[in-house]
Design a protein around this nucleic acid. Sequence first.
DNA 1: ATAAATTTTTAAATCGTTTAAATATTGGTT
DNA 2: AACCAATATTTAAACGATTTAAAAATTTAT
Lengths: 342, 342
Amino acid sequence: MTRKNKALTQKAIAQALGVSVATVSLALRNSPLIQASTRERVHRYVSEVGYVQNRAATALRTGRTRIIGVGFHDIVHPFFAEMLAATEAKLSDDGEAIFVNSHDDDLDRQARFVSSLMEHGADGLILSPALGTRESDLQPFRESGGAVVLIVRSIPDTSLDHVINDDPECMRLATTHLLNLGHDRIVMLGGKPGTTTADGRYEGFLRAMRDKGLDPGRDAWIDGPAKRLEGHAAVRQLWETGARLPTAIACFNDLVAFGAMSALAELGIEVGRDVAVVGIDDTDEAQVSFPPLTTVTNNAKVIGRTAVDILRQRLADPESGPLQQRLTPYISVRESCGANRA
Amino acid sequence: MTRKNKALTQKAIAQALGVSVATVSLALRNSPLIQASTRERVHRYVSEVGYVQNRAATALRTGRTRIIGVGFHDIVHPFFAEMLAATEAKLSDDGEAIFVNSHDDDLDRQARFVSSLMEHGADGLILSPALGTRESDLQPFRESGGAVVLIVRSIPDTSLDHVINDDPECMRLATTHLLNLGHDRIVMLGGKPGTTTADGRYEGFLRAMRDKGLDPGRDAWIDGPAKRLEGHAAVRQLWETGARLPTAIACFNDLVAFGAMSALAELGIEVGRDVAVVGIDDTDEAQVSFPPLTTVTNNAKVIGRTAVDILRQRLADPESGPLQQRLTPYISVRESCGANRA
DNA sequence: ATAAATTTTTAAATCGTTTAAATATTGGTT
DNA sequence: AACCAATATTTAAACGATTTAAAAATTTAT
């Protein structure tokens, strides 16, 4: 029994107009099979009475739903929030519906999400995969006809479509910038080992240091922190217990940098003068933090929008070769690194 | 033509097991009509071969989709992000799918979202309504059988279910706290006139002031700012052009307060000593901002979770009277107001 | 052994849309 | 007038699940 009231269906419209449902259906989809005058008559009537298409019925027949899933670690993280905002705006402008999931790096939650997408017959999935995701986890969804675009993190040696940042280059840029300012006691703060993002950034950190003839030990990477509170706590702990304190901190992302900067402020240390701080992401907040944060652009909005483009290409041509894009980062120099001090 | 491959249907399962599709359907839904042994046989087989239900087919027949829409102004705003995170966690734990929309106070975008929900047959909608939303905008969705719960903002005199904060009381608490610390040159910064949230908070601001015998003019409310960049810009402008500068700022929300604090820092003004700042929301960042922000709790997570509870009640009993909840705020005193200075 | 009561299973209708195939209509040629 | 080709519309069969009434199988009572 349908709970919905008096649903206005194509059948009812057909009756009212004295034509067949096929005519109504075709007219609504602007099929050239239908005479222009008839088509208009249908459209006029439909907008008069406020017909709403039943997508479940369409989906049942066509296998296409215009539903796209978007999954990532943490909605509250500004980077993902900005990415989601851009994705959502672009998709919904086009009439697509967005299923969202914040899996918090939990493979079970991610699996339930993918499963739900399959049940609902989602056309595609834009995913920043949880730590430990394998390509096979996404195989059933793909076999059922869904397109997948990975973002932010990828899976090693995958042939799946993806849009990722050049993570090593991000951190190499950030670190080199600090080195060029004369620092040599540099610490990399944050990131979870095992993720392509964190491992890649550490690689870039090492490369920059070695290019200048330095060879930092593994303890130059204080791993773990990925958000504000964690960055804050890590810096407090470092300054309370650390023997050899760094003169510069290359943070895993902006959020960690913000946490670090407020911890430093509490400790009476002036960022940009006593200690240099750089981030990665260039979130909106970086322009108005105190001091404004020098950071490497990892444009969340661009990633989101590019992912949508790639998803569309993939849906249009399911058979083409891998569509993989790696964005080129650049640095935005502000005050937190001390370079712009008057 | 279905684009999806070899969909494994109940029909196929029925054939494999030598029973009818009716038996399979009933067994899967654990109907008492089916013998326990048969039911188990079906369940075992189904999990073996990995059957996924076709929700479109179910929806077509039953009119229920287990899709819930969540709409609000701005995904990037931590308050909404936290609300969405809590809502999403609770709904998806229960197997419900979440359609998300960030309407940015644009009635058209909101309307398109609601329309999309109707097409997809969403069971419910949790909505922080865009400025200017009328109850009639949601009527078609409700008539089609959808349940609506408003959050954060409501609509005046509505009988719709809602979960809102006690906005006047929020700001009254914040302002009274500043007054008790001895301030009398207090400015309210931010909020869009015309929203129940902003108007309510201004009302609370006035009430607090008048309770102490003060009668601020309308220019004591610097309206507009609702996010970080706007709060930052407004404070810079105020200090550059303002004649009579305030000694305390009661901010519309935490985000505006953070923007204000970083602008003050740039101006060389020490927050908590030279100027007191309080916010509203108690976002996670408030604990680690510099200085830590005194703020009134407006618990995004609680609002999100309560909204889900109310939605479930409404779906269970569509006929009951209005379910309206107003949360009671309290203040968390930290350093930005100067009260906790050593 | 038969009838009645109960348990278990099934056939068939339905939900709203799409689409291939069939039919009806029109206009143009011989 | 008959025929053909184009154009316009309709018919009818899916799509995959749920659900009700009815049939079939089993148990219990007489």
